[in-house]
């Protein structure tokens, strides 16, 4: 066991970790930040995506000790300061970009990472970027609409109803 300290959602947080402790376990069990989900645990599904030093990372496939000192943003850090939903979160609600909600934390974090590097993506770019995030409810169209809306673009051209 070793003490691991990271800046999580702007706050300095410390919890113990074994060598094998995954970032997602450290967040969920060490800090009780359970918004980050474990879907597949094999790096396929993307439910566990968080931002590490500003980049999207699958928290089930990164070691907590290796990331000691990193700056991490999780879904809990995406709301506005007054507690209202952030832009991407609000767009998911407005465009019904979720049903069961299990994949949503990862979807929101991936979408936010995309919009940071590409503020006005095309529909094709949104679909390509979200390849590593699997949703078994929505069929993706409403998620794509939500991301287009969050980028301030017209959602009407999004294909297939």
């Amino acid at each position: 066991m070793a003490k691991v300290t990271m800046t999580v959602n702007g706050k300095t947080r410390t919890a113990e970790a074994e060598g094998r402790t995954l970032l997602v376990e450290w967040l969920r069990e060490g800090l009780r930040l359970t918004g980050t989900h474990v879907g597949c645990d094999t790096s396929q599904c993307g439910a566990c995506v968080v931002h590490v030093d500003g980049e999207a990372v699958k928290a089930c496939t990164a070691l907590a000790q290796e990331l000691d000192g990193a700056e991490v943003t999780t879904i809990e850090g995406m709301a506005n300061a007054d507690g209202s939903l952030g832009v991407v979160q609000q767009a998911f609600q407005d465009y019904h970009g979720l049903q069961c909600g299990f994949c949503t934390p990862g979807m929101v974090m991936s979408a936010a990472a995309l919009l940071k590097e590409n503020p006005k993506p095309t529909e094709a770019e949104v679909r390509h970027y979200l390849e590593g995030n699997i949703c078994r409810c929505t069929g993706y169209h409403n998620i794509v609409k939500a991301v287009m809306a969050a980028s301030g673009q017209d959602v009407a051209p999004v294909a297939a109803e």
Partner: peptide, 9 residues
């Protein structure tokens, strides 16, 4: 390769 999160690591 893979997806964006995989490419970041």
């Amino acid at each position: 390769i893979g997806d964006p999160a995989v490419r970041n690591r």
